[in-house]
């Protein structure tokens, strides 16, 4: 959609009518931009993953009750009323979708990328996950089960990827910098 697409113009028209009525102000939009450009993004989720890699007790607590385990982080951005963290292993690969809309753990990963919200991913990942993951460059061995988590209620899912080999000397902060958003959705591994 370009700046002058019909959608852009209609959105601008709606925004200006609401501003005229005092129901919205210009600065509200700036606040959104600041919040999601600067403060809420995938680094939040990456910090959780890195802590789980370094601290076995935290990992156990996170897998047992994700909502309670992330409370001390005090993430902003909403959209996580209940968090379930699913761990990848030698036997299981996990991948997350919302086929009915585009539910996503905003507070942990920021707003979702366009492909996550587009019809191709939402329609195909539940039906042919191996083929879709191949397109992302990820081949999951047939011996490994693929569990697709379709976020159909208010529970939000985060994939805990396996810690890559050769990272034993890195601290949490350095580890967090390694974790891409895609690995926490489950369309990539490290």
């Amino acid at each position: 959609m370009s700046e002058h697409s019909p959608q852009a113009i209609r959105a601008e028209a709606l925004e200006s009518l609401l501003i005229d009525q005092g129901l919205l102000s210009e600065s509200d939009v700036d606040e959104t931009l600041t919040l999601f450009n600067d403060r809420v993004g995938p680094l939040n989720g990456a910090r959780v993953v890195a802590k789980a890699w370094c601290d076995p007790e935290f990992r156990a607590a996170l897998l047992e009750d994700g909502t309670a385990a992330i409370e001390p982080f005090d993430f902003q951005g909403g959209e996580v009323q209940k968090l379930v963290v699913v761990a990848n292993s030698a036997d299981v690969h996990n991948v997350v979708v919302c086929t009915l809309c585009s539910c996503y753990p905003w507070a942990l990963l920021g707003l979702p990328p366009a492909w996550y919200k587009d019809p191709a991913y939402r329609s195909r990942i539940v039906r042919e996950p191996r083929r879709v993951l191949e397109e992302f460059g990820l081949t999951v061995p047939e011996s490994r089960e693929i569990r697709v988590w379709d976020s159909s209620a208010e529970v939000r899912y985060l994939v805990l990827p396996e810690r890559p080999a050769g990272t034993g000397d890195l601290d949490e902060e350095a580890l967090a910098a390694l974790v891409p958003r895609e690995a926490m959705i489950g369309v990539a591994v490290l």
């Binding site: 539940v126 042919e128 996950p129 083929r131 011996s143 988590w149 379709d150």
Partner: peptide, 10 residues
């Protein structure tokens, strides 16, 4: 596909 499952919250 082999070894494939879907989980839904219902």
């Amino acid at each position: 596909e082999p070894g494939q499952s879907v989980h839904l919250d219902l």
